[in-house]
């Protein structure tokens, strides 16, 4: 996307194109379903969730399919965003200053690009978890076809699948907290697609400079 197209009237800049927003919501809806049905099988105290979602056998049947959709969406994100998620020196400085970020002293943060280091961590965390969840999920999908001498595959899958899911729950909680509650305006960026110029300047100064053409370094 060329930079000038991203500036839209009323003091806003385009952050996410339609394709990006759609991918985000396919992943999000699939993830929420996976989380709800997964947690139902995780704990007897939450088994009722599967009952509400059409019955436990139905949840068992659909969970893996939702997993495939989720993985496809994450894969699409990888194709779209991976080049922008590379770790840079600014990110190193960002992690060093992360306590200022978490205490809302954003003026003390090194200037983030389109994604700050935390967002990059979220991306890679979700990407690798999705890979692990897919690999172990396929084993859990068809345990009866895993031959007896390959049973270790089942043994590690029942452990790694929920462990990876738990890891994504941590990422997911922080992600929703940041996007809905902490960084006001971020939620709109995945709905309408744009953010205010003030938002761009405050949280992604590097990115802002780039799109208004004041920066000499091209965006990676």
């Amino acid at each position: 996307m060329s930079t000038s197209e991203q500036i839209i009237p009323h003091g806003h800049v385009l952050r996410y194109a339609l394709k990006e927003r759609l991918t985000h919501w396919v992943a999000a809806v699939a993830y929420l379903y996976l989380l709800a049905t997964g947690l139902a099988f995780w704990s007897p105290w939450l088994f009722w969730v599967a009952v509400i979602l059409g019955g436990a056998p139905v949840s068992r049947m659909l969970h893996p399919w939702a997993g495939l959709i989720f993985f496809a969406a994450v894969w699409n994100m990888y194709v779209m965003w991976a080049p922008q998620m590379k770790h840079t020196d600014v990110d190193k400085a960002w992690w060093k200053a992360v306590r200022y970020y978490s205490t809302n002293q954003d003026d003390k943060m090194p200037p983030a690009g389109r994604y700050n280091a935390g967002q990059k961590f979220l991306f890679w965390g979700f990407f690798w978890s999705a890979v692990a969840l897919l690999a172990t999920g396929v084993v859990l999908w068809f345990p009866e076809y895993i031959p007896w001498n390959l049973r270790f595959l089942r043994y590690i899958s029942v452990l790694i699948h929920p462990a990876a899911a738990l890891f994504t729950v941590g990422l997911f909680l922080i992600h929703v907290y940041m996007g809905v509650f902490a960084e006001r305006g971020a939620f709109g960026s995945v709905i309408r697609g744009d953010v205010s110029i003030a938002f761009a300047k405050r949280y992604h100064p590097g990115w802002y400079k780039e799109i208004v053409g004041q920066s000499s370094t091209p965006r990676k």
Binding site: S102, D106, R184, S196, A198, F199, R202, Y203
Partner: peptide, 21 residues
């Protein structure tokens, strides 16, 4: 933890001010 964090620190900035400077 997140809930307490919100009570302590709140949002980073108010959106209204950004949209309507």
């Amino acid at each position: 933890g997140l809930f307490v964090h919100y009570l302590r620190y709140g949002p980073k900035a108010r959106e209204e001010e950004d949209i309507n400077p």
